[in-house]
Design a binder for these strands. Structure first.
Length: 908
RNA sequence: GGGCGCAUAGCUCAGCGGUAGAGCGCUGCUCUUACAAAGCAGAUGUCGGCGGUUCAAAUCCGUCUGUGCCCACCA
């Protein structure tokens, strides 16, 4: 016999030696029941065989397309457009699973559902990737020239985009492919131009020279949030400026910028330096004289209380310079290289720093050094290069009024943020926003629609305007920040600025599902642009923020750390459903999601369980044909599972509405596996074997329960449920099946669907008895399959109808005339008397009973104390008191039972 | 420097005022005719420390310690 192994490396080999092809047999063969025709389902679920074809069938049938002319209520979620920089990682798989589950459910609920697909050109990120490709060929973008380079990026986009949509198909994303958009599509570019022009005309876009964050490697400006601050080791040097009484010591970490100093600043109230304010002192190495100014910004407690002021290379200094009318003297070029000043010219900023410190030291100007000195330094979020504050002319969005509206929309409750704790972060951002630098000195992106004329004219060109032509006119060479276009995504994808039927139908979006990491980058921008462009209608009503995917130890996934996972590998090994279910099961709102391969295996096992349970049901003639039998024709077991089913339907709905993916997945997992596939199926086996009307009723109930359960599971595990549901019901597709509502049992109508508390209690008791006897068997070392003669005394209980099922589950055989019990187990009012043929292990049993007795006595003591506490009796709610009384009674019963068992133990 | 979280079983996390839970892992038994990717049984926790509120605290409040994230113009 061959040892079977799962397909992919890393998958655990199957442990069994007993895998063999099994013919499907039908357990009713000894009865008059006709054999049921059973479709050929293999004994193991192999996702690879079904997933691919299913997805393509769904797409071909147009299930995922959205009709803007539909009468159904709309439900819209836009994909957070992945960057076309490569392929999707597990974080995307996670996000897509959540969105797909939400949209699949709404589609089943009868909404006109649009899951809008598309991708982001991701300006700087993509340009960097392609530049790196070029570098491998020994070329730079400048060798190609702008036009050819952009052409090259488009090629890259096509490849990368193909990969991404391939991954999305594999994952099962039910997106409206015919509506796929790209931020640099013609239509979306028109949207960009339209909004730019409108903002420009409203004076919310302007051009100004300011200190910006400059990346000397990417050679472009970036916005404040594209800067990542980290603590770097630097060196704080104190330098004496001036001579003798007219000298002042400044502390700096950026000695090289002193070449561009145009003042020294001190606090206005600082008496130490009061005599120097208004005078000029000599700036070392340069021979220049610079003024000493008084400015509130200076912290007299820090360092020497005196600051060198370099307006061209520091944002604070720039402000000081502006207040005091200082000159902006730039000494670094766009690559961070010293531009002038004799001996230092041509050195890059870091070389220049040590060279200048060396020169100053030689001059005796360095009075103190602190090394290392840890301070926060900004880095380019794309290439990690240290940011250089640089004075330059850029385009800006004046965010004040836009951000105000974006904040108010949440404050006024027009937009809700889940989880709510994230609101404070959002407010902290939108309420303290600086103007947004939107121009980038890149080639890949939307070119700024502004033309400059020969005589200094500046013309912003709208989408319907003719661009100025003629001698001396040229377009701005910069492109827009990539977030400018993605900020329009909720409506630009629908055809805006045209007032299309799609805009009418699908704007605003229903929910935005995205990671908390881009709350500022993307979400806030969409809010600002959406409210502005759509006359105050926010882009969505709800923002559901999810966490970041982490590895099984909670560590951030990253390529450099080596724990990043390609979702395709796991999907190949375990199936898409398994990956999806694992991700959904970890999705607590706003919280990071750890995921490990072992857990995916667990989910794969669950898929297999669903598969086999359905297979079993089909073999036993489970059916969805015809009405459910009336309540009085149903066994307690049937009523119990239907009652539980209805609870689960309600719970799952509530969890969906609250974006509690982990809860809903877990609820379904336990209901399906423990209750339906385990207890219900096991308890029903004897019924099926016996045949007759009871079996017919159970077949119908099992069919119903499975039908509903598969539909409930479908949004999270679409593939396996599709195969099984269509087989079970003969329906066209579960994708377009109705989302379950509470099951109604004829003759037992109740608001909210059928419930039966008595049946639930009854089955709980059955479970209790079975578990207790199994424990006894296990403790006695009886093998699971070993049959034991036993008498089941169920008088005084309502369990008589379950006797056959219980005997079967417990492997109890009928007793003869000469039956003598060697063990007697009273539990839940029933008594199981077993004949272990004298083999009972008295000591093991006594040990177990002693332990149980101790536990019961402790419980009795606790509950008795509680019920004897007057304060408790006076203040606790009746419900709680009742619970304690029940516990006390149970403890007393346990003690009585255990004492009886001990007494019944044979003496050695 | 501000703000927000988190500390619960070996690991990853639920629970957030009334008997400590899940998944995975661990131990033992088993081909039990849907499923060994399974079944059954079992072990494991002073719910970070210290105070307080309460009849009752993992759960609320204070505080300490550890840890994570976000924001900020510390030269």
């Amino acid at each position: 016999m061959t040892l079977l192994t799962a397909g992919a490396s890393g998958a655990k080999p199957i442990r069994s030696r007993y895998i063999r092809a099994r013919t499907l047999s039908v357990v009713t063969e000894n009865t008059q029941q006709p054999k049921h025709s059973v479709p050929e389902l293999p004994t193991q679920y192999t996702p690879a065989d079904v997933e691919g074809p299913l997805y393509e069938r769904w797409v071909e049938r147009g299930y995922f397309e959205a009709d803007e002319k539909s009468e159904k209520p709309p439900y819209t979620i836009v994909i957070p457009p992945p960057n076309v920089t490569g392929s999707l990682h597990l974080g995307h798989a996670f996000e897509h699973t959540l969105i797909d589950a939400l949209t699949r459910r709404k589609r089943m609920q009868g909404y006109e559902t649009l899951w809008q697909p598309g991708m982001d050109h991701a300006g700087i990120a993509t340009q960097n990737v392609v530049e790196r490709e070029l570098a491998k060929e020994g070329a730079s973008r400048h060798d190609l020239g702008r036009e050819a380079f952009v052409e090259r990026v488009w090629q890259w986009k096509d490849e990368s985009g193909g990969q991404i949509s391939g991954q999305m198909r594999r994952l099962g994303d039910g997106v409206a492919w015919s509506r796929e958009r790209f931020t640099m599509d013609e239509g979306l570019s028109k949207a960009v131009q339209t909004i730019f022009k409108r903002l420009y005309d409203d004076e919310l876009i302007y051009r100004a020279e300011r200190i910006i964050n400059w990346c000397p490697r990417c050679l472009t400006a970036i916005s404040d949030i594209e800067v990542e601050y980290q603590d770097d080791d630097g060196e704080l040097v104190s330098i004496r400026y001036g001579e003798g009484d007219a000298s002042i010591v400044v502390a700096t970490t950026r000695a090289e910028t002193m070449l561009g100093d145009t003042a020294v600043a001190v606090h206005p109230d600082d008496e130490r330096y009061a005599h120097l304010v208004g005078t000029e002192i000599e700036l070392p190495l340069t021979g220049r004289s610079i003024p000493v100014v008084a400015d509130e910004h200076v912290d007299p407690e820090f360092g020497t209380g005196a600051v060198k002021v370099t307006p061209a290379h520091d944002p604070n200094d720039f402000e000081i310079g502006r207040r005091h009318g200082l000159a902006n003297l730039a000494v670094l070029d766009e690559r961070g290289v010293i531009t002038a000043h004799g001996p230092f010219q041509g050195l890059d900023r870091f070389e220049a720093r040590s060279a200048i410190v060396g020169a100053l030291r030689a001059d005796g100007r360095i009075v103190a050094e602190k090394r290392p000195y840890t301070h926060s330094v900004g880095h380019c979020s794309r290439c990690k290069t240290t940011i250089e504050p640089r004075l330059s002319m850029q385009w800006w969005v004046k965010v004040g009024p836009l951000a105000k509206a974006a904040g108010d929309a949440v404050r006024d409750g027009k937009v809700a943020i889940h989880p709510k704790e994230m609101e404070s972060r959002y407010f902290g951002w939108v309420d303290n926003l600086h103007d947004w630098c939107i121009s980038r000195q890149l080639w890949w992106g939307h070119r700024i629609p502004v033309w400059y004329g020969p005589n200094g004219e500046v013309v912003c060109v709208g989408p319907d305007d003719e661009a100025p032509t003629g001698e001396g006119w040229h377009q701005d060479t910069d492109v827009l920040d990539t977030w400018f276009s993605s900020g329009l995504w909720p409506f630009s994808t629908l055809g805006w600025p045209e007032q299309t039927p799609s805009v009418e139908k699908f704007y605003p979006n229903s929910v935005l599902v995205t990671g908390y990491d881009i709350l500022f980058f993307w979400v806030a921008r969409m809010m600002m642009f959406g409210l502005y462009a759509m006359d105050g209608t926010p882009p969505f009503h709800t923002i559901a923020l999810h966490g970041m995917v982490r590895d099984q130890f909670g560590k951030k996934m990253s390529k450099s750390f080596g724990n990043a996972v390609n979702p395709l590998d796991w999907m190949d090994a375990y199936g898409s459903d398994a990956v999806r279910f694992t991700l959904a099961r970890g999705a607590n709102p706003g919280v990071d999601v750890p995921i490990g391969e072992d857990w995916v295996q667990g989910s794969r096992n669950f898929a297999n369980k669903i598969w086999n349970a359905t297979r079993f049901a089909l073999m036993n003639g489970a059916t969805v044909e015809g009405e459910l039998p009336p309540a009085d024709a149903l066994s307690a077991t049937d009523r119990w599972i239907l009652s539980r089913l209805n609870s689960v339907v309600a719970e799952v709905d509530a969890y969906y509405d609250d974006y509690q993916f982990a809860k809903l997945s877990d609820t379904l997992f336990h209901f399906a596996w423990d209750e339906v596939f385990d207890w219900y199926v096991e308890l029903s086996k004897t019924t099926f074997m016996a045949g007759g009307p009871a079996a017919d009723a159970s077949r119908r109930v099992l069919g119903e329960v499975l039908d509903v359960t598969l539909r409930l599971l479908h949004p999270v595990v679409p593939f396996v449920t599709e195969t099984l549901w269509t087989t079970l019901t003969g329906g066209e597709s579960v994708v377009i099946a109705e989302w379950p509502t509470a099951v109604v049992v004829p003759g037992a109508d109740a608001p909210g669907g059928f419930r039966d508390a008595a049946a639930e209690r009854e089955i709980e008791t059955v479970q209790q008895v079975v578990t207790e006897v199994r424990r006894f068997r296990s403790d006695q070392g009886l093998q699971p399959g070993q049959k034991v003669p036993a008498r089941l005394d169920l008088t005084g209980t309502a369990l008589a109808p379950h006797e056959a099922a219980m005997r079967s589950l417990l492997r109890l055989t009928p007793t003869g005339e000469d039956f003598t019990a060697t063990a007697s187990l009273p539990v839940a009012g029933a008594t199981v008397a077993l004949d272990l043929s004298g083999a009972i292990d008295v000591e093991a049993e006594r040990k177990r009973l002693t332990k149980d007795l101790a536990a019961a006595e402790k419980e009795l003591a606790q509950t008795t104390a509680k019920l004897g506490n007057e304060a408790f009796l006076a203040k606790a709610p009746e419900q709680v008191k009742e619970k304690i009384r029940t516990r006390k009674a149970a403890a007393e019963a346990d003690i009585e039972r255990i004492t009886a068992q001990v007494a019944a133990l044979p003496t050695a």
